[in-house]
Amino acid sequence: MSGEPLLAVRDLAVVIGGRHILHGVDLDVAPSGVTALLGRNGAGKTTTVRAVLGLVPRTGSVRLAGEETVRLPTHLLVRRGIGYAPEDRGVFAGLTVAENLRLAERPGAGEPAYDLVHELFPELKARARQPAGTLSGGQQQMVAIGRTLLNGNRLIIADEPTKGLAPRVVTEVARVLERAARAVPVLLVEQNLALVRRLAGHCAVLADGRTVHRGPAADLLADPDATRRLLGVGRRTAVTEEHPMAPPGPDPSSAAQAGKAGA
């Protein structure tokens, strides 16, 4: 990876209700381009993102541009310049589109970039007064991504932004992410490997709450064996494939993956 990582996560651990969800996640987000966070369902990707943001209690080290943030409350960390589009999109259903966007404004942190958001998603301007709960899934995702672009963020975190969307919308979201990544580094959690191949420079792979692989995304995806072993998918992945929920408990293949942890 070239240059200092923008976000450096070391030994991130999460315990919820006496259960270890994350054991020790290491993750670097490159200072430019898209870094993908991969892994099977239940591997801990979303928990990792939520732990980085402080939305779940966590231990370890999370450095944003060199500053240790693991003790910061979520809102202060976010104000350091993070835009977050969560897995369930986090759109406020009872609020209008305009209100959802207005909520993401950060008073005192520069003009909100409504021009950019409306240029990328003209639909949001047209539907400004519509309650967000009545939008389609794709439109809600636009609101979620639009909120991350409103401020001059240093990092955008998008958790499965294409999940459950129609192929046409997936393409649109991908185009926006690609464009956004030219200006701002993006941490992308994604199951859609075609999208990862197209966007991501680097990647990290989680299994059972641990980092089991780090390296250039292209190298991983070019190796069908590694892809199958680490992500449990074949060479060709359907664009909108949904994986069944992985059963809880230790994965039989975790021992094999652990051997790869130092890679």
């Binding site: 943001l53 939305l55 409350p73 979520t74 809102h75 976010v78 104000r79 993070i82 977050y84 969560p86 986090g90 406020f92 259903a93 009872g94 609020l95 909520l103 993401a104 950060r106 909120r147």
Partner: peptide
């Protein structure tokens, strides 16, 4: 509606 998301927006 969603307290956690409000903090995740920096509020």
């Amino acid at each position: 509606e969603d307290r956690a998301m409000v903090t995740a927006l920096g509020i």
